[in-house]
Design a protein around this nucleic acid. Structure first.
Lengths: 135, 135
DNA sequence: ATTAAAACCTACTGCTTTGGTAGGGTTTTT
DNA sequence: AAAAACCCTACCAAAGCAGTAGGTTTTAAT
């Protein structure tokens, strides 16, 4: 399951997609419109900025906005930034790989199954973008 | 990510598949062979029994064994019993559905994406069985 | 009938993560 | 000077995760 934090992230990003090319959007506006706790949202947006998904402008008239066109940011990317691994097992993760103990990957049936699941999942999440969220 | 508990469950089940039709297997044997903490394993096997995946026999000569043929128990079933939901959002879960707040499912883009992910995932996990784990 | 083996059951513990809240200070821009 | 993002520390309650402890019941062999 995605964490609430990730779900908040998607809701916030959706708002920024809807206001794409209309200049910076206040944190407080996103918080109000999407009903996300303000201070919590602050952290989330900062993370998304550090990850290169958002940009911000300080001072009066400042706020957050998408760094790239909505069709350029993939759903998978957002999940990885906020929640971490998408795979069901560490030993099949592409970005958060860890070897599993007591299990030889070459002969582990579960490994194979979860690899297939990963591929099927990423096939969707790496194609869908922020743009697809507002249709 | 699957919990360690679920991963233990699969390791234990794998052992029982390897010893299918050889009579009851001791918890302590599974624990030793698969390097799973004994008391923890006890709980896991009990859960799997209550869920109808395993059977047991008490007393001397007792132990655990698969209730049905390995090809009859699906990977998805095991995950649901031990870990719970497979979907990435409660609002797309088939077995653990919950409505999401502040989001109309009819117009929620994320909902649609996660529905696709669910279908792709289940398409694999509901076809693969315990038998596939030991190949 | 007794005893030992085994599953069964309940509860508990310690740790980490999640989902926040509180409150400030700093920097940049208008 | 004011507005806004930025950044930081600290704290909290609740839940989940991983595992442990210890006793109860059932069964089979003696």
């Amino acid at each position: 399951m995605l964490s609430k934090k990730t779900q908040y992230a998607f809701r916030a990003l959706t708002h920024l997609v809807e206001n794409y090319n209309k200049g910076p959007v206040l944190i407080s506006e996103i918080s109000k419109k999407k009903k996300i706790p303000l201070k919590f949202l602050e952290n989330i947006l900062l993370e998304l900025k550090k990850a290169g998904i958002l940009e911000s402008k300080k001072g009066k008239g400042g706020g957050y906005f998408l760094k790239s066109h909505p069709s350029k940011t993939h759903v998978a990317n957002v999940i990885r930034v906020v929640d971490g691994p998408i795979s069901m097992l560490p030993c099949v993760s592409l970005y958060f790989y860890e070897r599993c103990k007591n299990c030889d990957e070459r002969y582990c049936g579960l490994h194979d199954v979860m690899e297939k699941v990963r591929d099927a999942t990423l096939n969707i999440l790496e194609k869908r973008t922020l743009q697809d969220l507002v249709v």
